[in-house]
């Protein structure tokens, strides 16, 4: 019996010592972000083969579901999509007109640079294991030119940035994570602020200049000032404004443009460096 008690206290002592080690690690990795990045890269590399295989299997099931069972209601969806294509074609024509006009004006102003980006396409192969961190794993890593801090875009807008890069895969912190922040402006009024993550599928816009001019439905785009995200990328739409009273900044909620739960293919921006356009050199 005394031996059992002795064992219990030994375990309690060991647990306490390990807890202190955990506290030290927490403090250390908070100061040295690289440590957490290296740790994530190791786990990422360990999980990569399993993640790739399991996503292929899952993709197969999803494909069967989409091809056969999911066809119920396809006619209705088809009609909606046709209408959407028509609307987008109209919008596209208008945007092409604007782009040409922009080109001409740039030529007039002799602006010799363009914002062409170099990027790498990637597929989502995993999500974060806990409920607290909003992150995804992608199937491209340092061997494909991906590095920490690179911006990641989806088909509809900004997704997040790379926080760890293993040789064959990488971890992307989503814009909805609490530790994420993006310098953004409103497309129309140019009011500026920081879009911070606020949990699953939600962001808040803080430190907003000219907050009075913000309306629900306003589109937020990246300002490019943070040096991470290219300028003019859609971040999200203002979904609600909560006026908390006089003297307190309003709580502006933003719905991300990208459906972060359903995205499959992403684009990692490997270089933000401006590319000189040949025609303008002349």
């Amino acid at each position: 019996m005394p031996r059992a008690i002795d064992n219990r206290f030994r375990i309690a002592g060991a647990s306490l010592a390990l807890f202190c080690l955990a506290l030290f690690l927490t403090a250390y990795s908070a100061k040295n972000k690289q440590a957490a990045g290296i740790g994530a890269a190791i786990v990422q590399q360990l999980l990569h083969p399993f993640q790739t295989v399991s996503f292929k299997i899952y993709g197969g099931f999803a494909s069967v579901w989409d091809s056969y069972i999911g066809l119920v209601g396809a006619a209705e969806e088809n009609l909606t999509l046709r209408q959407r294509v028509e609307a987008l074609e109209n919008q596209n024509a208008h945007l092409m007109e604007v782009a040409q006009e922009n080109e001409r004006l740039r030529g007039l102003l002799k602006m010799g640079e363009d914002s062409k980006l170099s990027s790498v396409a990637a597929r989502v192969i995993g999500y974060d294991a806990s409920n607290w961190i909003q992150a995804v794993s992608i199937d491209r890593g340092s061997q494909h030119g991906i590095k920490e801090g690179m911006a990641v875009l989806g088909s509809s807008g900004v997704v997040g940035q790379v926080i760890a890069a293993a040789p064959l895969s990488a971890k992307v912190l989503l814009l909805t994570d609490h530790s994420s922040g993006i310098d953004a402006i409103i497309q129309g009024t140019r009011a500026r602020g920081i879009v911070e993550g606020a949990g699953p599928n939600e962001c808040v816009w803080r430190f907003v200049t000219e907050a009075d001019e913000v309306k629900v439905g306003d589109r937020l785009v990246t300002s490019g000032a943070d040096g991470v995200y290219p300028r003019g990328m859609l971040v999200g739409v203002v979904s609600s404004i909560d006026e908390r009273g006089k003297g307190v900044a309003p709580m502006i909620k933003v719905e991300p443009a990208e459906d972060l739960d359903r995205m499959e293919n992403l684009l990692v921006v490997t270089s933000l460096a401006p590319v000189v356009v040949e025609a303008r050199k002349k």
């Binding site: 908070a30 740790g39 294991a129 806990s130």
Partner: peptide, 13 residues
């Protein structure tokens, strides 16, 4: 913690 990639230690603790 390593899977999260933000900070090491809180889950371990």
């Amino acid at each position: 913690d390593m899977c999260g990639g933000i900070v090491l230690g809180p889950w371990a603790g």
